[in-house]
């Protein structure tokens, strides 16, 4: 029975940032041999109702690299079980299963990168494209005491965004954060970025 001869992959873990989920593990080393890995997953539904069912991952059945992008397989905000096994020719290892089930609501949300630009007297913001899950909350204000802070919600795919008309000689600041409706969470705000508008301030 060749199943147990090949050691099973160890140290499975999931690295999830901004709704991109990557399963990693320690490679199985057999000198001068190429090891292939197969990844399978089981959603909470399968665990509850069909525990014998495991589904081959979209991109890693098989793969040669000790990691697997499982983003397309994790499609609901429920917990998922993941397992990997190694294969060398006809030899197959035992399955190794991720110790703790993974839920996309644990993903790390980073403040979005942004670029503030001017188009004439229009203040524009270009935001990092993080994919269809992400909305952006953009906060902007005129850099002067007591200035009112304005907020604009930016849907996925709508870039760059016009914020407002600006006045010569004035300075404006902008910050942004992301929101992911599927998990009901938002990132921290980015550091404010300020720009000074060319030209002489208008007389009062």
């Amino acid at each position: 029975d060749g199943a147990a001869v090949l050691p099973a992959p160890q140290n499975l873990s999931v690295r999830s940032v901004n709704m991109k989920h990557v399963l990693t593990w320690s490679p199985v080393i057999v000198p001068e041999e190429i090891i292939h890995y197969s990844v399978e997953y089981q959603g909470e539904y399968e665990s509850l109702y069909m525990s014998h069912i495991w589904i081959p991952s979209s991109w890693c059945s098989p793969t040669q690299r000790p990691e697997c992008d499982i983003t397309e397989d994790i499609t609901a905000t429920v917990s998922y079980s993941l397992r990997v096994r190694a294969t060398l020719g006809s030899l197959t290892s035992a399955w190794s299963t991720l110790k703790h089930r993974f839920n996309q609501n644990s993903t790390i949300l980073t403040p979005p990168r942004m670029e503030i630009t001017m188009d004439g007297f229009h203040l524009l913001i270009k935001l990092e494209d993080l994919g269809p899950h992400f909305e952006f909350f953009v906060s902007y204000w005129r850099k002067e005491p007591g200035a009112k802070e304005h907020v604009k919600v930016v849907r996925p795919g709508v870039l760059p965004v016009y914020l407002e008309m600006v006045e010569p000689g004035a300075a404006y600041c902008v910050k942004a954060r992301t929101f992911v409706k599927a998990i009901g969470r938002h990132s921290a705000f980015s550091q404010p970025e300020c720009v000074k508008v060319q030209g002489e301030a208008l007389p009062l």
Partner: peptide
């Protein structure tokens, strides 16, 4: 299977 799993887990 993947699509049905996606549906089932979304319904859950």
């Amino acid at each position: 299977m993947r699509k049905i799993s996606s549906l089932a887990n979304s319904f859950l």
